[in-house]
Amino acid sequence: MAQTKLKVINVGTEWFVPFLEEQGVNVLRVEWSPPVERPSDITSILRKLRK
């Protein structure tokens, strides 16, 4: 087992986070989700709005 204290970076879904935190592990949360699939014309309208 690791001799040093475990540090965890959690990317996306936080399913495991509570289990780790219950064991005293420090968890850094990074919000991430898979890219959204959408029709190309919708992507194009959203791009224009972001300008």
Binding site: R38, D41, I45, K48, L49
Partner: peptide, 13 residues
């Protein structure tokens, strides 16, 4: 998606 398409049409995007 349909609402956004109509929004783009109405507001000239």
């Amino acid at each position: 998606n349909e609402a956004l398409r109509e929004f783009a049409r109405v507001y000239g995007l």
